[in-house]
Structure formats: structure tokens, C-alpha cells
């Protein structure tokens, strides 16, 4: 367990994560998970991750210096076209998410959308999301969810959002000293299996990382969690561990996923895993329902379990800060 970092849960609700110690505090992990929807702040600063519920503790954590700062927002699972009781108005909740983004004190540099943009892969649903996101005036980087590649092996997704002429939608880019890698794990899924990257993409990833310095912070984003969150519900990626093995030599790796419609976080070695809320509907905690389908909560609770993730990076301090905030 040498490469597992330590969580220290404090009475104030702050979780500190010491990158230079071993062992793991499960209470801390669970506490972080329990914040789903209510908003949580996770800061990695000079190798130390700190987390706090949004609001009260915000002021007690040092705000990163503004110089060389990169800020971006992750949104996920907008499921445009969904209209079932779990959320009859996914347009309204996505619009609220956009208002939140527009109201952020630090204007983000761009937006990452980690898939399930649409519910049924129709052109109209893609168009609607595009229209709503336009008002952020931000560039949006997408990776597909399984709902975006329903009927055409992802052809429509690629035509709209593809950034790499090769493959099924994977790509990488550099921004403010951080290397970003978008992966696709929703294509060519095998019967009985989980999410899948496939040998061609793994080969590309290995090759892509060759030119990246080990000191460069890396952000990997994909729809289905790359770590085994709950394989019984398909919440994991069959060859995710192989992809992560290529990232071991890098000092700071942040893996951002969607798919499970709730925030969850764990830190293992140099890697921080984090899943974002949906902007459309919540899903149950692993194993806490008969299946992983949309979860209906009382109407006045819905916006408390939907949300966005704001990520900040301070170049000088080599740190990433993740802030989950609910729509209400």
C-alpha cells in the first residue's frame, strides 16, 4: 500500500491529503463522498490535497495565487432529451449550470464535458446543448458518453466534436503548462464487460505521453470512470488499469470522469480520481438500489444533487483544486 496517500479527516470537515505519507483513512474518503451534491472543495497545493464542504470552509482555505493560474470547469451527463420523472426539464437544469459557470469569480479558460451530452444521440439534442453552452463564451472540449454514440458508432459525435482525425474521438492538448488527455471508453464494448479503451487507443496514449515531461501535471478525462467504482453496475473500465500504468511516472495526475451522476473521489499514489455530478438527474450510490437507473428525488431536492466541478491550477505551486458545487 506504499503508493496510497493518506487522508486526514478533521473535525472541521476538511480533508487533507498528504502526498508524502502512506496509508489511507477510509473515514476521510467516505466523508468526501458524502458531500455529493452539497458542494465540496478539494485543493491540491504543493503536493497536498485539502477538501472542504463548499461555503463555510471556503474562506479558511488559502485561495491560490492568481498568477499563472489556469481555471476550467467540468460538466457532465447533460442527457439532453431526457424527460422522465427524475427530471422532466433537463434544459432548465443545464441552463442553471451555465449560469453558475458564468457567475464564477475566476472566469474559466474552457469547459470539459465528460459525455452523455445527449440522451438519445439525435442532432436536435446535440444542437440544444450547443445552443445552451454558447452563452458561456467558452471553448468546450468533449468526450462521448455511451448515449452519444447510440446508432452510428459515434460518427455524429466525431463530426461535431472530433479533434483528432484518427481513432474514435481521443485527443490531447496542452494548456497553461498542463497536459490534457481526452479518452473514449464507450465504444466497441464487449458483452459482459465494462468500459473499454481498446489496444489502438492505449497505443496512442503511450505514444502521446512520450513527449510529456514527468513534472508536467496531467489531466485525463473520459466518460466512464477509469477506476473500478462499482463493476457490478458497469462502473469501471476493463483496461483502465493499463492506461493508468502509463501515468505512474508522472508527478501529478488528475482523472476526471462522469457517468455515475454523483461526486466521488479517491487518491492513489500520484493520481487523484474524481467524478462529477450530472446536470440532468442523480443516480443511486453504488449498491444502494436495485440498479443504476435515474433516481427520483423530491422536486425541491433535485438541484441539490446536480452540479458542476470547477478546477483551478496554479503553475508555480503545481497544484490542482477541484470544487464541486451543486446547482442550488
Amino acid at each position: 500500500m506504499k503508493d496510497i496517500k493518506q487522508f486526514v479527516s478533521t473535525a472541521s470537515g476538511i480533508i487533507e491529503h498528504d502526498h508524502h505519507q502512506d496509508g489511507i483513512d477510509r473515514r476521510g474518503f467516505l466523508k468526501c463522498m458524502a458531500w455529493a451534491g452539497s458542494g465540496a472543495l478539494c485543493v491540491v497545493e504543493a503536493g497536498v490535497l485539502k477538501s472542504a464542504a463548499l461555503g463555510a470552509q471556503l474562506g479558511s482555505l488559502k485561495k491560490p495565487a492568481t498568477s499563472n493560474q489556469l481555471s476550467f470547469v467540468q460538466i457532465s451527463d447533460s442527457h439532453m432529451g431526457f424527460s422522465k420523472p427524475a427530471n422532466p426539464d433537463v434544459v432548465a437544469t443545464l441552463e442553471t449550470a451555465v449560469s453558475k459557470i458564468n457567475a464564477l469569480p475566476d472566469t474559466p479558460g474552457f469547459i470539459l464535458h465528460t459525455g452523455d451530452i445527449t440522451h438519445l444521440s439525435t442532432p436536435e439534442q446535440f444542437d440544444t446543448v450547443e445552443q445552451i453552452l454558447k452563452s458561456t463564451n467558452q471553448e468546450v472540449f468533449f468526450v462521448p458518453g455511451e448515449h452519444d454514440v447510440l446508432n452510428d458508432d459515434g460518427a455524429m459525435f466525431l463530426k461535431r466534436y472530433g479533434r483528432n482525425p484518427k481513432g474514435t474521438g481521443w485527443y490531447s492538448f496542452n494548456h497553461s503548462g498542463v497536459h490534457f488527455i481526452g479518452l473514449v471508453n464507450v465504444m466497441n464494448l464487449k458483452a459482459g464487460g465494462l468500459g473499454n479503451l481498446g489496444p489502438e487507443q492505449l497505443e496512442w496514449l503511450k505514444d502521446d505521453l512520450r513527449a510529456v515531461k514527468h513534472s508536467t501535471p496531467i489531466v485525463v478525462f473520459a466518460h466512464i470512470p477509469l477506476w473500478a467504482v462499482y463493476p457490478q453496475w458497469g462502473w469501471g473500465t476493463d483496461d483502465g488499469a493499463l492506461a493508468l500504468s502509463y501515468l505512474k511516472k508522472f508527478g501529478s495526475v488528475t482523472v476526471l470522469n462522469g457517468h455515475i451522476h454523483q461526486t466521488m473521489q479517491k487518491v492513489e499514489g500520484n493520481v487523484t480520481f474524481h467524478t462529477a455530478c450530472s446536470t440532468a438527474f442523480p443516480q443511486p450510490s453504488p449498491g444502494q438500489a436495485e440498479g443504476p437507473g435515474p433516481m427520483k428525488v423530491p422536486a425541491d431536492q433535485l438541484r441539490k444533487v446536480l452540479g458542476i466541478t470547477d478546477v483551478n491550477y496554479v503553475q508555480r505551486r503545481r497544484g490542482l483544486a477541484l470544487v464541486d458545487s451543486s446547482l442550488e
Partner: peptide, 12 residues
């Protein structure tokens, strides 16, 4: 004939 859900492959 074995079949599955191509987007939820745990379903067989």
C-alpha cells in the same frame, strides 16, 4: 444466439 446491450454490456 448470445446478445447484450451494446451500451450497458453487463446486460446479457
Amino acid at each position: 444466439y448470445s446478445y447484450y446491450c451494446s451500451i450497458h454490456p453487463k446486460m446479457t
